[in-house]
């Protein structure tokens, strides 16, 4: 048996010795990561192909709600401007919609609440692996973009947020397929209550066919753009810029 154990050790050692350090140096190489991330485009194209533009995420019932919906990312936006708005119950908050639109808008919260509403009970899937089910109420992004008169040149919608990691503000972006999707809403209420601070008050984007980090919290401004290249780090989102996370987070 000695020979066999040695042989197995040898094989394991060969696998470990060759594969692992190799993987780690490749994992740090930008060009190799670019090769790996080509699968992201393949995933996006094929998922859109089988799912279509308007395939709906499953909607659950009140009986399915998570007893306690986990928060993630920033629990607050730590700026004096945000503190002031939080203190006055967002009376001075305006959701700005600008960029490639005909009529830039600044919409107060009570006007948002008076617009046609959509309520959906959906599952929030974090990139880490956990899921929580919550009820979200808000205005369809497509409705807001209609009001603002979206330009034909707009390819992406960027969400600018009040929260930041260190000095780097959080932001996210989606393409027009997800922006115009019926379940994409700017939500101001969760489980029948005004959106709690920890979940991104006063407004959080719901992008129901993508992972949690796309669902920008503390949204202050919605900008329509032609390209993401000039927005912050150019990769379309905070986590995309700083940490190699996929811009398309459908899987």
């Amino acid at each position: 048996m000695t020979i066999i154990t040695n042989r197995r050790k040898l094989l394991a050692g060969m696998a470990g010795g060759l594969l692992l350090p190799g993987c780690d140096s490749w994992s740090r190489s930008e060009s190799f990561k670019n090769v790996l991330s080509s699968a992201e485009d393949l995933s996006r194209v094929s998922q859109r192909l089988v799912g279509g533009r308007n395939g709906l995420a499953r909607e659950y019932t009140l009986a399915d709600l998570s007893p306690r919906h986990r928060m993630n990312g920033n629990r607050t936006a730590d700026t004096s401007a945000y503190r002031t708005m939080l203190a006055n119950n967002f009376a001075t908050y305006r959701l700005r919609i600008d960029g490639l639109v005909e009529r830039p808008l600044a919409i107060p919260l009570d006007r948002l609440r008076a617009m046609p509403q959509r309520t959906q009970i959906t599952r929030h899937d974090c990139v880490e692996g956990w899921s929580a089910i919550g009820q979200w109420t808000g205005v369809q992004l497509s409705h807001l973009l209609d009001l603002a008169g979206l330009s034909e040149q707009a390819n992406y919608i960027v969400f600018h947020c009040a929260d930041s990691f260190g000095d780097t503000p959080y932001y996210e972006s989606i393409d027009m397929v997800d922006a115009l999707h019926p379940q994409t809403i700017m939500s101001h209420a969760m489980n029948g209550e005004p959106l709690p601070e920890g979940h991104g008050a006063p407004i959080r984007a719901r992008i129901e066919r993508q992972l949690g980090y796309k669902h920008a919290k503390f949204v202050m401004r919605i900008e329509a753009v032609e390209s993401l290249d000039d927005i912050y780090g150019g990769k379309g989102g905070y986590w995309e810029d700083v940490g190699d996370y996929a811009w398309y987070a459908g899987i």
Binding site: L20, P21, C23, S27, L36, S37, A39, D244, Y245, A246
Partner: peptide
């Protein structure tokens, strides 16, 4: 770390490897 790719913790990089080889 000896059982994971990459050997250092990076969820984003692990996902890059996973979804490329999943295809």
């Amino acid at each position: 770390s000896w059982s994971t790719i990459p050997g250092f913790y990076s969820l984003a990089t692990g996902r890059l490897w996973h979804f490329f080889f999943a295809w």
